[in-house]
Design a protein around this nucleic acid. Structure first.
Lengths: 186, 186
DNA sequence: TACGATAGAGAACGATCGTTCTCATCGCAA
DNA sequence: TTGCGATGAGAACGATCGTTCTCTATCGTA
């Protein structure tokens, strides 16, 4: 047998992949068990319910998002470049073969009603991203309203790329962000 | 008894309201029947399956979206004002008490897998909107790439407003669109 | 080797859903 | 009035899902 930490990781990873590809409600716990190779009994010992597993999956997504953004920002020297690095991160993500839109938006649309934890988690994730952008905008010396505009571009790029099934929305949003930055800094 | 046209309208309207508020999979056909006041037998005589009812609901949403955009555009004199009228339409929509994001995005996130009709319908709706914006951008004498940027702002405003539960994303996106328009026309 | 605790495989359970079917009721033609 | 076709209300059916339970095999230890 493997220890609890490893079993948890395998279950969350398998559930993430399945939920993200097919939607939460379309995936049964049996499918998670098969994909993770962990018995149902063990899964329910690690997570009290499917909702708790969904929460763990969203937490995993949150960590991945933050790490991906931070990695791109680390290569950028200025606050302006760190802002644009967000769209470079999105560009790379949109090109991954299993990209299927923002997992938080998908989860919110599917589960917001009847699962208040999901609503709260998604709202907090988006608010945290807006704070991240707001800090960078302030560092860049640009006026505060620019932050919300940059965040809206990032959100719009995600849904546009997901539905179109093509990655060009990242570059288009990035170009728009550059124009907005230039206009704000004059 | 009421005639087929009226019964169809009542069923689609009730289903739209329920699906939009709670998600498609969370609403049973019994709930549609109760809300519409039309028997299950009649519903299945009008729509061969729940999927067909979902398709009819999306078609209704498409007509409402187009009518709402057209009504706002009718008040605008120039192509530039017609572009900005999109965000005025969004602002009014976001303030409706039952606003819950874009029904097409929600349906795509919930049903894209296992219901190809939904994927196609949503993709067509978004493509049609992009063509609408592209025509206005051309009429305004602005370069083509601006169209995709405007569309991304509109998409981002919808998801941002839905998740935050507040309408200010419309005004923020409109302000960004004005800056992009000004920069493109110089 | 014998034993007790444990874990996995999957059957079982209760609930729910989409869809179909039954049956009592009603309107209407002859 | 009588009989027939159609309709609505909702029971019924088969499938699926989240969750729990049973049974068997395995492992470490004395």
């Amino acid at each position: 047998m493997i220890d609890d930490t490893a079993a948890r990781a395998k279950v969350v990873e398998a559930a993430d992949q399945l939920f993200y590809a097919h939607g939460v409600q379309a995936v049964g716990m049996d499918a998670v068990r098969t994909a993770a190779g962990v018995s149902l009994k063990r899964i329910y010992a690690l997570f009290p319910s499917k909702d708790a597993l969904v929460a763990a999956v969203l937490e995993r997504r949150r960590a991945q998002w933050n790490a991906g953004i931070a990695a791109r920002a680390a290569d950028a020297a200025t606050a302006r470049e760190k802002i644009l690095a967000v769209f470079d991160f999105l560009d790379g993500w949109f090109r991954e073969p299993d990209f299927n839109g923002c997992a938080f938006i998908n989860a919110y649309g599917e589960l917001h009603d009847g699962n208040p934890d999901v609503t709260r988690t998604v709202r907090e994730q988006k608010a945290a991203f807006q704070r991240y952008v707001a800090d960078l905008v302030r560092d860049a010396g640009a006026p505060d309203p620019l932050a919300a505009q940059i965040a809206i571009l990032a959100e719009g790029a995600q849904t546009t790329a997901a539905i179109a099934g093509t990655p060009e929305a990242a570059a288009q949003a990035r170009a728009a962000a550059e124009v907005l930055l230039d206009a704000a800094m004059t």
